[in-house]
Design a protein around this nucleic acid. Structure first.
Length: 439
RNA sequence: GUGGCCAUAGCUCAAUGGCAGAGCGUCUGACUGUGGAUCAGAAGGUUGCGGGUUCGACACCCGUUGGCCACCCCA
């Protein structure tokens, strides 16, 4: 062998070592649980999609970030999936026999060639839940309710799901009379209202070459406080598209009230914008106030997307939870329950010497049969070393069967946290250990 | 994609341009039935990588890769 290869992972991607994986599995398990409780069912799709499946759906800016993954000698142009939404619409178009409304969730990695940063990776997991085949605002309300339930279950306290409607944004654009190709700049400036204030937005709009008279109208409009439907209706009432959007949000508000989602956890924010091109109706985005890490969830209604793959379009709404950011916030705020340890092993069964390998193996298997995660020490090289190993791995208990215990048909259970030891008859081993381990 | 900060032992960090160090961790022993305490000792480095300046570079210059931060955008 010549010079060694530097062990590295691709930029923006990472290994997830066991301790991290235990935390992730906890979070993903909770999320999956809630998804199922709302009647969503699992779906899996390939990591690679045909390039043509992905292109033309997200907008130019987003599509620059799509990874190509064509094989050297392959005949198909392939790309790594950019999100889970477009694959879903592809599935819906391919299997028209799926019973509607089709409610599916998918928890899987997606890839985006962005410049990495904290809370932003090139390979990351998304947790999506969508309802295909219902145009009712009740579907949107279910999505927002579920977002609330997930975050609340994970222990989040101060978070707000902001809700707006693409139709209102379109209305704002019409009201301002800005040409279509400038709408992007307009929306982007509006989106920054909270971050940079009205003056900042004014500056931003001027930079985007939006006429001065329009800018003033915009600032006025966008400065309408959240939840103030009346004021907005007064201004945009002449525009059918805006009226329609407002009507939808009012219905949504009623349904959220029915669902008892706490008023503090959602807000109708007419300045909230989402970048993806395919949204057509209500849009949502959840932010936490404590560590500023961007949005934890994002989603909305995209009634026309399925239509790009099929002769008929199907109304669809859904959300994507940013599991990576949720995990980052939970790390920062130490939100994991004590029950997720650093290891899955509950008991290390030590091996006193070669002659007692059999006794320890039988004990380990008895524990395993009783549903206890038991690890058998693999080298009989001294009790001290084995206990040190247990401590290093944060295994909470060690079982010791030395000559004395073996002769008396007993075993010693040592609590590595307190140092307390109990002598247990081998006949009652599993039950006695179970009691100790669970407490 | 644009701009800035950073990269030295497994980890956290030192070292006026002049012999690359400390703390923690790791390993061994004091302790042949007990880890986390104490003591003694040991291992561990091409200073991210490639060039350049210099008698001499961890330090200065250029490039490159990666991490972080602010934009852009977004989960």
């Amino acid at each position: 062998m010549g010079t060694k290869i530097q062990p590295r992972v691709p930029r923006g991607m990472r290994d997830l070592l066991p301790q991290k994986m235990l935390q992730r599995q906890y979070v993903i398990g909770k999320v999956e649980n809630i998804f199922q409780r709302f009647g969503f069912e699992p779906l899996q799709t390939p990591a690679l999609e045909l390039r043509e499946t992905l292109m033309g759906k997200y907008g130019d800016d987003a599509e620059k970030l799509i990874y190509d993954a064509k094989h050297r000698e392959g005949k198909e142009d392939l790309s790594l999936r950019y999100d889970l939404t477009v694959p879903l619409t592809r599935v819906v178009a391919m299997y028209p026999e799926l019973v509607k409304p089709f409610k599916r969730y998918q928890i899987a990695p997606v890839w985006r060639a962005e410049r990495p940063q904290k809370g932003r990776y090139r390979e990351f997991y998304q947790c999506d839940a969508d309802i295909v085949g219902s145009k009712s605002m009740l579907a949107d309300a279910e999505i927002v309710t579920m977002i609330y339930t997930v975050l609340q279950t994970l222990g989040f306290k101060s978070f707000v799901t902001k809700i707006n409607n693409r139709k209102i944004l379109t209305g704002i654009g019409q009201y301002a009379g800005v040409p279509n190709e400038m709408l992007g700049g307009l929306y982007r400036a509006i989106d920054k209202l909270e971050k940079i204030g009205a003056d900042g937005v004014r500056e931003e709009m001027t930079k985007s070459a939006i006429p001065a008279n329009v800018v003033d109208k915009m600032i006025d409009l966008v400065s309408i406080p959240p939840d103030n439907f009346g004021e907005l209706r007064e201004r945009l009432g002449d525009l059918p598209i805006a009226t329609e959007g407002l009507g939808e949000l009012e219905q949504l508000a009623t349904f959220l009230g029915d669902a008892n989602v706490p008023r503090a956890n959602y807000q109708f924010d007419f300045a909230m914008v989402r970048g993806l091109a395919y949204y057509t109706g209500p849009i949502y985005e959840t932010v936490v106030t404590e560590p500023k890490i961007g949005s934890l969830t994002g989603g909305g209604r995209y009634d026309e997307l399925v239509g790009l793959f099929s002769s008929q379009s199907i109304p669809t709404t859904g959300t994507s939870l940013g599991i990576e950011r949720i995990i980052d916030v939970m790390d920062e705020l130490a939100m994991y329950p004590a029950s997720i340890g650093k290891t899955v092993t509950q008991v290390l069964v030590t091996v006193f010497n070669r002659d007692l390998i059999g006794a320890s193996t039988r004990a380990a298997n008895a524990l395993r049969a009783a549903g206890i995660n038991a690890e058998l020490a693999l080298d009989a090289e001294g009790l001290g070393k084995q206990l040190k190993y247990a401590a290093a791995k944060a295994i909470p208990f060690a079982l010791i069967i030395g000559p004395d215990e073996a002769a008396a048909q007993k075993a010693t259970l040592r609590d590595l946290t307190s140092g307390e030891q109990t002598l247990i008859p081998q006949s009652e081993l599993a039950d006695a250990v179970k009691l100790k381990v669970k407490s």
